[in-house]
Design a protein around this nucleic acid. Structure first.
Lengths: 206, 206
DNA sequence: ACTATAAGTGAGTAATCACTCATTATGAAA
DNA sequence: TTTCATAATGAGTGATTACTCACTTATAGT
C-alpha cells in the first residue's frame, strides 16, 4: 500500500506530474518522452519536475518501484504454507486464485505494468528491483507450493524452475494479449481466463 | 530469402551500418540510440547513413522488415493442408516441428527479434507489417490445422483464436525466458523445450 | 583517358534535450 | 502582521539530436 500512501502524501502538482508521466511514458516509451512534454501535460513548469525528482530516470523509478513491490505482494504473505492446506484445496484453485488476482491487479495498473515490461530491459535498477522481490519473497514460497502439489500428484515432477516459468509465461501471455496487444479483440475475457487456467492445470498434470 | 539478398547487395559500409545499428538498438532501444553512435561504431561518417536511409526510422524498418517476413514464412508454404496428412501424423509432431523451427530461427536472429518485440508497441508500421503477414498467410493455414486436429480429437474444441494464442504465448514465453530474460540460467534448453512442447500438447487435449 | 553516376564525407543547421538557478508565490507558525 | 521554509516558476545552460549539403572519392561504361 506504500504506493497509495506515497500518492496521498504528494502535493497536487506532484500528482499531476506523476499521472502525466505515466500516460506519456506508457504511450511513447521512456527514452522518447521529454520532461518538457510531461510538464506541459501536467500543467506545470518544467523546473517543478526537478524540485521533486533529481532526474528524469528518478521519476521513472519512483513510478515503477511501488508497483513492482505490489505485484509480488500476494506471494509474500507469511505462512503461505499453512494457508495452503486450508485455502487451496487443489492446484487448480491455487492457480485460479493467483491468476484472477494478478490479472485484476494488472488491469488496474495497466499503464505502469506496460512501462515495467517495456523498460525493464534497458534499466538495470528495474531488473534489480524485480529480482530482489522474487528472490526475497516469491521463490521460497512458490517452490514449496509447487513441491506440495507435486507430492499430491496434481503436478508433474518437472524442474520447479520450469513449472514456475510455465505458470508465469501463461499469466503474462494472457495479460499481454488480452489487455495490451489485442485489447479490442478480447470480448469474453473471464471465459478466456478460465480456459487458460484449465489449460495450465491440465498441461502440468503428471 | 529477400533478407540475405538485400544484405549481399549492400556495400561494405552499408553492411557495417546495419550491423552496428542492430547491435546498439537491441542493447539500448531505438529511441535511445543516436545516429552519431551508429556511425561511430560502424566506422562511417554520419552522413553516409542518410545516403542509404531517408531517416533513422527508415533504417529501423529496413532492419526489422525482412525478419518479420521470415518469421511467418513457414506458415506461408502452399498446400500446408496437404502436407498435413503426410508430414504431421499427430498434433504433437506439428507443435514440435513449429516450435523447434521457430526457436532456432529466433536464436539465429536474436538481436533483431529483440528489437521487434521491443519496438512494435511504439511503431505502427511494424505492427502493420506483422498484422499483414499474419492476416495474409498465417491465419487461414493455422485455423485449418487446428480444426483438423480438433476433428481427430487431439485438441479440445476451444475457440481457434484462444488455441492460437496459447500456442504463440508459450512459444514466445519460452524464447523470452530462455534467450532474453535469463539467458545464463538456460542450461538444458532442448529438454526444457521438449517439456514445454508436451505441456502445450497435454494442456490442449480435450 | 573521359565521363557520368553513385558512394562517402564532415562541417554545419535549427531544434530539442535534461537540467539549473535566481526569483517569486504560497501557506502556516509565531 | 511578520517570519520562514517550502513550492513553483520560466528563462537560460551547454550538450546532443536527426538531418543537410557542398564537396571529394571511387566505380564503371565507353
Amino acid at each position: 500500500m506504500s504506493y497509495l500512501v506515497e500518492k496521498t502524501n504528494m502535493s497536487l502538482k506532484q500528482r499531476q506530474i506523476v499521472e502525466a508521466a505515466i500516460e506519456i511514458i506508457s504511450e511513447k516509451g521512456f527514452a522518447a518522452t521529454s520532461t518538457s512534454e510531461i510538464a506541459k501535460r501536467a500543467g506545470v513548469a518544467e523546473g517543478t519536475i526537478f524540485r521533486h525528482y533529481q532526474s528524469k530516470k528518478d521519476l521513472l523509478l519512483s513510478i515503477v518501484g511501488p508497483v513492482i513491490a505490489e505485484v509480488f505482494a500476494p506471494m509474500a504473505i507469511r505462512d503461505l504454507e499453512n494457508v495452503l492446506a486450508e485455502e487451496f484445496t487443489s492446484f487448480e484453485s491455487f492457480i485460479r486464485a493467483v491468476y484472477s488476482n494478478r490479472v485484476a491487479f494488472a488491469e488496474k495498473h495497466l499503464p505502469i505494468v506496460r512501462i515495467i515490461l517495456q523498460e525493464a530491459p534497458y534499466h538495470p535498477e528495474i531488473r534489480a528491483q524485480i529480482l530482489q522481490q522474487v528472490a526475497s519473497s516469491v521463490i521460497n514460497k512458490v517452490t514449496k507450493i509447487i513441491q506440495h502439489f507435486q507430492l499430491t500428484g496434481e503436478v508433474a515432477t518437472l524442474p520447479t524452475k520450469l513449472v514456475f516459468q510455465l505458470i508465469i509465461s501463461n499469466l503474462v501471455g494472457f495479460v499481454l494479449s488480452s489487455y495490451i496487444a489485442f485489447p479490442k479483440l478480447a470480448k469474453n475475457m473471464e471465459e478466456d481466463l478460465e480456459q487458460t487456467i484449465q489449460f495450465v492445470v491440465k498441461g502440468l498434470r503428471p
